[in-house]
Write a protein that binds this DNA or RNA. Structure first.
Lengths: 115, 115
DNA sequence: CCATTTGTCAACCGGTCGGTTAAATGAAGC
DNA sequence: GCTTCATTTAACCGACCGGTTGACAAATGG
């Protein structure tokens, strides 16, 4: 247990239901019932998903009478983006290779360097 | 089975061993034995991790005599980055709020707008 | 106090995950 | 053909995941 924070974030994001919940929370805080509405799933199931997101730091929860609204915590996503950023140069390089390959095709003839 | 590609990528990244393998592959292709060397883990375990990464599209594999070198496929990571990009404006906003809060603290007195 | 509304907890279930060991495969070299 | 090296497959294991149902808790409001 107690996996590292980054693993917890990736694991939390690896479920489409949870990603949909995050997308919904972009529009503002929402109660469990509101969040559960789009899904064909029991309330406890949604509650569990919220707990996973909360433990990963991706959302926070408050109390408002009998409601427990959930709120997006976007800085946690920034942590994931920062990890990915180390790899940007690799996919940029891949894209450049693909780009020049396509340019050579476009130029039509065999006037580009082979390889 | 057959989860959506984005879920497969997040799930593959949710394991520190697999992230370490990707980091190693930044330095170039590597055989299974090379990749397994840093880990206190059997070879079949590493082989399984590679299969997860491959099914997620994050690496590809070739054949070279009796070796099956693995190679980073960075465009797959770009797919993850693109999904995250939708949330950038939210963490930027959070960061700006934090930033101006700290600026007001730095200015010391209560001359900033509250709330 | 009682009922209603909202949400969580507990126990259970089948399936997947991350690891193991032992056996099988594939290619190379003698 | 046999051996050796590199890797995968198969079977198994305990733990975790995503879902269920049923009971419980906590706040609101008559």
């Amino acid at each position: 247990m107690t996996p590292d924070p980054l693993s917890a974030k990736f694991a939390a994001l690896a479920d489409p239901t949870r990603r949909a919940i995050l997308a919904r929370l972009c529009e503002g805080e929402a109660s469990v019932n509101e969040l559960a509405e789009p899904f064909d799933m029991s309330l406890p199931a949604v509650s569990k998903h919220l707990k996973v997101l909360e433990k990963a730091g991706l959302i926070s929860r408050s109390r408002e009478a009998q409601w427990r609204p959930a709120k997006l915590e976007p800085m946690a996503l920034k942590g994931v983006a920062d990890w990915l950023e180390h790899y940007r140069r690799y996919w940029d390089a891949s894209f450049d290779r693909l780009d020049s390959y396509l340019r050579n095709l476009q130029k039509g003839k065999d006037d580009g360097q082979r390889n």
